[in-house]
Nucleic acid binder design. Structure first.
Lengths: 347, 347
DNA sequence: CGTGAGAATTAGAACGTTCCAATTCGCTGG
DNA sequence: CCAGCGAATTGGAACGTTCTAATTCTCACG
């Protein structure tokens, strides 16, 4: 491979015997150029192995076609689905989104956001790391770069968000358990510094209250939002004096953890303890037992968020309406059959 | 939010009462500047809300600190793990990798690679989409941009790759099944236009041959490398006249599919049919039954690949040694206990 | 054969940074 | 008080593109 210097627009102008302006015009597909000339230019481009320098171009154009996607946990299949939804709409808009992972780390997130800005992104879709404040987005607001939050909103600050109806989802889940005959319920996972946590936990409480579940029969255990956290939550809850017989989990990962921990204790999820998840990731239906979960149409929310940024970019505004996506409960096997109300649960 | 024009280095120079050169120096942390002056500059930067324009800078510097990561299926947790490994090393090198997904689509991959080049990436780690040819990387070779393939290598062409020892892994898996007493074996999933497929299938055949399994007792079924593909493979295989009693699967996703399909037929994975996966994704250990799988230290390979590009970038070369990562079989429950050799399998 | 009116092409000034070379500053020593 | 030196600062060209305004072609028409 010849390590020839990287070709510029002038090189290919010389090669094709035209001016750099002409080449530029061809590059942006202007109809002004005689097809014959355009052909010559395109051939030269191919011959020389020219690669367009978008950085240089943006210097003048001031609008790039890159959109950044900042995600807090690439490892959670849930976020991969979100990404997939977004990509669908960007692809058809001829845009290549750049994804970056923050691993739930605000410091890393700061770096990532900085890097994206420096790169000159036209817009940003962010699923913020735990503990993110509106402050983190001041820079973008200042620079007029559209930001849409996905899946998680901020406590304060006016950053538009696309989120599922967390409260209602949790209400549905809890009501389902109560309808099944459970009277001692738990909510597992999440931390009180996350807005989503409050929304879901509140929805859970709503249902308990509406159905007259006594406060002392409600167990709430905070914990990490992954399998490990779920396992820990269950262990904590079952060692309590008045243990629950069923749980609404912060998300599916936590639910899987809970089921794992149940098995480890020789209890069968669904029969000995009912579990509901949240998010309805693809694995939920394949698990044994299949997980009852609140479905949130992740990919759909991703699409929605993508459309939002696109529109904001076009209308050069930095604000937009929030969007709250519908949720619905997908009943599978992890809550077992209706509980005999005379039976008193398990421990 | 004041939609003030975006500030440049000159604005902050004016603000701080120094020259643009000084600001530039401060920006790159030169020790030449009097600390006092640097302080003034940094304050101005903060006040004005300046964001560095890396595009403009690269115009002169000609080396960026962006590294691209092109992945063929973000949805597969396996690749998310790969990404995580890479990020670990990039993070400590102060580099923010940009990830893009090709969804196993060579056309999309072409777009993505083009976009990354235009963005001026310093190097690329690519897990190529199915059917990718060396041709796809000619551009980068020409431009002297280091490319390292991860997890999949190309049939032809000299693009350095970091891959697991596929052949040996498949051999281990098959040998395990044979040791358990199985005599009619299958290999499920993957397509013959994938190099990995050949490596794994060959390893499988090696073991069969070494242990004297007759050719007519070997079933090979191609299929998609996801759950759906696995289900299809099992269905096909069990409808054959001389059906297998155990299978080595192309990857864990296929293995999960196979187990699903077994259940659907009322067969119990592990007891009625033995299954081995490949990749050992985190879910493998949590599945019921836990999946026996070939572990490949995905994150480790990711790290390795990352180090490779870094080194290539530094030494401005475009070639490097291949790296073949060690594999080992993690035995769990999906192959059941040793098979009674008098028993004749199932169908 | 001259004249316009488009159509097609082009020169040249930006854009925001880096970096070399040149300038100025602050001292020390004579 | 000045020479001289290193430290600190700065001017200006260059990087690869876009875009406006200007120029040159081409050709139909009188």
């Amino acid at each position: 491979m010849p390590v020839r210097e990287k070709a510029t627009i002038l090189d290919i102008a010389r090669e094709a015997g035209v001016s750099k302006s002409t080449v530029s015009l061809v590059l942006q597909g202007s109809g002004l150029i005689r097809p014959e000339t355009a052909g010559k230019v395109r051939k030269a481009i191919e011959d020389v192995g020219y690669v367009y320098n978008r950085g240089a171009a943006n210097l003048r154009k001031s609008h790039s076609n890159v959109i950044g996607m900042v995600i807090n946990d690439l490892t959670n299949p849930f976020f991969a689905e979100l990404a997939v939804g977004m990509e669908r709409v960007f692809q058809s808009a001829g845009i290549v989104p750049f994804i970056a992972n923050t691993a739930e780390n605000p410091v890393r997130q700061e770096e990532v956001l900085k890097s994206m800005m420096e790169q000159g992104v036209a817009g940003l879709i962010v699923s913020p790391a735990r503990g993110t404040t509106a402050e983190a987005f001041r820079r973008m607001q200042q620079a007029g770069i559209p930001v849409v939050l996905a899946m998680r909103r901020l406590r304060e600050g006016r950053v538009p968000a696309v989120v599922p109806d967390n409260r209602r989802g949790a209400t549905l889940a809890a009501a389902h358990l109560i309808r099944k005959g459970h009277r001692r319920l738990a909510f597992f996972g999440g931390f009180s510094d996350m807005v989503v946590y409050h929304e879901r936990a509140d929805g859970f409480r709503d249902a308990c209250e509406a159905h007259g579940i006594a406060t002392q029969d409600i167990t709430i255990v905070e914990g990490e939002t992954n399998r490990k956290g779920g396992m820990a939550c269950l262990d904590t809850a079952l060692s309590l004096p008045n243990p629950p017989t069923a749980a609404v989990c912060f998300n599916d990962a936590v639910a899987f953890g809970v089921m794992l921990a149940l098995r480890k204790r020789g209890l069968e999820p669904g029969r000995d303890f009912a579990v509901v998840g949240f998010d309805d990731v693809v694995e939920a239906q394949h698990y044994v037992p299949a997980l009852t979960s609140v479905s949130v149409d992740t990919a759909g929310l991703g699409e929605r968020a993508a459309h939002s940024v696109l529109k904001m970019i076009q209308s050069r505004t930095t604000r937009a309406e929030d969007h709250v996506g519908a949720v619905n409960l997908v009943v599978r096997e992890s809550c077992g059959p209706d509980l005999d109300t005379s039976r008193d649960g398990v421990a």
